[in-house]
Design a protein around this nucleic acid. Sequence first.
RNA 1: GCGGGAGUAGUUCAGUUGGUUAGAACGCCGGCCUGUCACGCCGGAGGUCGCGGGUUCAAGUCCCGUCUCUCGCGCCA
Length: 613
Amino acid sequence: MHAYRTHKCGDLRKDNVGETVKLSGWIHKKRDHGGVLFVDLRDTYGLTQCVVDEGSPLIDTIDKWHSESVITITGHVKARADETVNTKLATGDIEVYIDEVVMQSEADVIPFQVAEDDGTGEDHRLKYRYLDLRREKMQKNIRLRNNVIRSIRERMYAQDFQEFQTPILTASSPEGARDYLVPSRLHPGKFYALPQAPQQFKQLLMMSGFDKYFQIAPCFRDEDGRADRLAEFYQLDVEMSFVTQDDVFNTLEPVINGIFEEFSDFKGKKQSVTPTPFPRIPYRDVMLKYGSDKPDLRNPLEIVDVTAVFERDDVEFNAFKNVIKKGGVVRAIKAPGVGGQPRSFFDKLNSWAQGEGAPGLGYILFEGNEGKGPIAKFVPSEAQAQLREIAGLESGDAVFFICNLEKKAAHMAGLARDKICDDMGANGLPGRETGCYKFCWIVDYPMYELDEKTAKIDFSHNPFSMPQGGLEALNTEDPLEVMADQYDCVCNGFELASGAIRNHQPEIMEKAFGIAGYGKDTLEKEFGGMLNAMRYGAPPHGGIAYGIDRMVMLLADEPNLREVYAFVMNGQYEDLMMNAPSEATPDQLKDLSLKLNLPKPKVEGGEEEKKRA
RNA sequence: GCGGGAGUAGUUCAGUUGGUUAGAACGCCGGCCUGUCACGCCGGAGGUCGCGGGUUCAAGUCCCGUCUCUCGCGCCA
């Protein structure tokens, strides 16, 4: 007989009755009934109820062992009596009567329960991650992650993509985030950068003649965290040669749609997925209609521009008029059917807006043809008619206004759109849709944008993107009007992917960087390797990168990325289990020719407290 | 760097207007129980109320400072 097991803990069925079996696993739970003791034994595959029968000398031994101890039991399988069958358990028809037991690893009292999902605090869970990972939910989430990645690979292989590995110790890539740096011992004073993405390498692979590249690529960015943002994360990184934007979309849509169709029932209920082709929304439209370049299309509300109404001579609302004079715009959100809501519904939204830094959230509520509300008296009936026309308002609808400079107005309108939608949902009106994954492409991003602080022109997205219209557009058009073949893939308000058709011509590259104020020397110094490659025959190419963790997070219906990683840092980017980051020894620093110049220490208590915990 | 929320037993939380000895559930320890599978019953241990200062006859509760976690803003295109 095997040293540890003849079966897994999820295996045994009625067919096995009468067999002598060996199982190994963790003590999940014990139930002591005096004469008889039940032990739920758990492994990766399931749970089996084991019984120490009346009179067995093992009762006292096993009863003393703590939960989560690892044991091996040998016993014989018996059918349960009809009234004791447990239909909730896959192995619930049988139980194993223990004849022998071996303690493999005795557990101390555990700091929180594994068998039950209490709401243990996150820092605690991360410190004892190996215990946390034993819990049912985490086992399922990590398994989902495995399955999603396997399915991605199969789908990419099926389309003839080759998988590559690219360097981790490398140079800075063109993404704009802060790099993680690794000091070089052999080259004092010089540093490697960890890749923010394998951007240049995948383009170089195109120039190396590999045509279809993909990688489940680790990426590193040293910026502050968010629920959906970590220092290190994984991308489905893709690049293709001789392709247009349509080719990229046609390649990735079935992969992404397929993944979501395959796993969208993870939480037990099938969710609908946007069928291919995904809708495409130009950047300008999405900023106007949704106030964000990552719109949640489950929210049915849309934004319209009503500047024209408040510009009219017969409208005397100076709060808006003065902003319009300074170049501002007025955006309106139609909220259908809120006429029955109490005054507090509108007051709450107003104070929410003030909390977001806006002066308020003005509105007009229409009953019949008559506008009501604090602003209505400034808008005469003809202007109200124009407003109803533009926003498509009917009796019982309200319209909320945001007035500011265009960029700020769009942003605030986007926030208000979501807030109004959720408040409507909370008050029994149709709110955000549920049970669906709503995808779209955002296309036609501007190549450049104006930096508000410096008033300088800079790349708005990836500087390696191909400007629409090529060199001629860069030479003849206002740079702020030039679009790029740049695209994002958005799902339920999350930016899942970003990509572009790349610039493969050195002249265009020089011109494009020149417009953003980067000289030829900078370009050569930063990206000389790739620029050189372009001079020896570079195919037109393009690609995209999907955030794998975000996809798994959406499929697992989790509120943050930490729930879909096995080992992960906290919000401050500390690994509480491994104690990282940690100090370097003087010898290590000497090796690296580094001297520390630390900021003043914080008030004592912080570090001390952590050590005690 | 800024803002919101949180910090009380091992864990999750309650704690009224400032007022006696700070409670509950789960866990843990001891006892009982032959069929449970969220087992049940009896008993017990366990607290720097994050830390420091202040107000007060009296502070978990009020005030000030500070630390930590978390969500968001900035940042990340």
